[in-house]
Nucleic acid binder design. Structure first.
Lengths: 247, 247
DNA sequence: ACAAAAGTGTTCCTCTTACACCCATGA
DNA sequence: TCATGGGTGTAAGAGGAACACTTTTGT
């Protein structure tokens, strides 16, 4: 009988994506040292150990709610990071001491959450010591948190093509340009504004409001809302007929 | 300090997909009872507990190699199944006894593997007591293995659109019809043969061989091979310009 | 000869792409 | 009045969709 690993701790780490109208950002927190060995300035993703009788989605909700103060965030599991050496001995000691636990191994599960980056949220995260950093400017996170982050971005890019989750990062009423900027930021591409509008309006997923932007020093843009009812699977099947982007 | 769960066991379960030229199949194994309480006929996905100092991909390789006798399979992680009640008390006892371990909780990680279903493999899996079952006819697996299976199929459908992994399930030399049947089986759709050929050939991903099918009682089809060099990211970026299928 | 699947072209039409100017507002 | 981003249309071309008959082999 070989040695089966049973004394594992499982954690979740959340990549919380937000959009400020121009850039895609992620929420980072400082490692709370409580330990002279560690630099209080090191940045990490918000995370936690799972508790007894808690599912992973529950743990991820707890973490993202703790970091943002918001309930019912859109949350999606990405990958598991299980390399036995992802946590070195010193880190393991710190984790055990910090959590008051004793374990041989820590496996972590990545999640991403999508939030609307409004003033209230900014204030909350600031109070909590969180930092919203442009995704393409993040570097030097602890352990394998950079891997977890880039994995989350890759998964987000794929997901966003298949469901209207992009709107989770926009205010309830938004301009066409905001949506365009968001997609450009997520994919790192440029989109032709005229063609984008044409496609967008003909798809019927936007509901026009009679409100306009205020206090902008240029022609104010109209605000739109998401038309949730404009989704159907018939279209998906049609799309699938042209099966496979590698063809 | 809350109770942090540390005494977890982590397992992997592999959905091994194969294609027989017509149907998409998955490899199932019988639960090895060694226990009068359990019916030896219950079917499950091949799986195992992770060992000390083993990563999850390593464990998944070990499981899929054990089940198929093949090395270097294409393997992809899908989701984690972490519901504390996914394993009921009786199951937990069985697992502990069967593996000679003691644990409070078993969390499992889903993987899928893609294989070429040839005669050698069929013989091997038959000897091992494995069963290749059409994916749409599978039901009644133990625990949450049905969930793991359908999750794997969903992930496969998305993945297959973004990379040429479909060819992992075809022989080195294959007919156009085989590829078409495979895609039809994976997505559950019908594809127009003439248009499919046009698109396929113009994409340049097939290399023509001078071999033909043998011993078929109709006009023999030409065999083709995959042209690995026909992939580039320039095309992907172009596709992304029409961002989002929900538009 | 017959059954069974392979292989092949054309037309219609939709959707993508590329592109430049006037408009409304705050400063 | 100026700077800034909002908002609009068209033409050319590519690509998708629909569709029926002949060919080759084994039995």
């Amino acid at each position: 009988m070989v040695n089966v690993q049973t004394n594992s701790a499982i954690s979740v780490d959340c990549v919380i994506f937000g959009f400020d109208g121009v850039n895609l950002k992620a929420l980072l927190v400082r490692r709370r040292a409580s330990d002279p060995l560690y630099d209080d300035n090191e940045l990490k993703l918000p995370g936690a150990m799972i508790r007894e009788n808690e599912t992973l989605p529950e743990a991820a909700s707890r973490v993202s709610e703790g970091a943002t103060g918001l309930k019912d965030l859109y949350l999606k599991q990405t990958s598991i990071f299980s390399d036995p050496s992802r946590v070195d001995e010193a880190e393991l000691k710190w984790i055990c001491r910090y959590h008051g636990i004793n374990t041989d191994r820590v496996v972590t599960v990545g999640y991403y959450a999508l939030v609307k980056l409004d003033q209230g949220l900014l204030r909350h995260t600031l109070r909590m010591g969180g930092l919203w950093v442009n995704v393409d400017e993040i570097h030097g996170l602890i352990m394998d948190h950079m891997d977890i982050l880039s994995d989350a971005l890759t998964v987000l890019q794929k997901d966003i093509l298949w469901s209207p989750i992009a709107f989770q990062m926009l205010p309830k009423k938004f301009t066409v340009r905001q949506l365009q900027n968001l997609l450009e930021a997520v994919f790192g591409i440029e989109i032709d504004n005229r063609n984008f509008r044409k496609k967008l309006f003909s798809s019927g997923i936007l509901l026009e409001t009679d409100e306009m932007e205020k206090h902008v020093s240029h022609k104010p843009a109209r605000l739109y809302m998401l038309n949730k009812s404009a989704f159907g699977k018939k279209e998906l099947t049609k799309k699938l007929h042209f099966v496979a982007s590698w063809l």
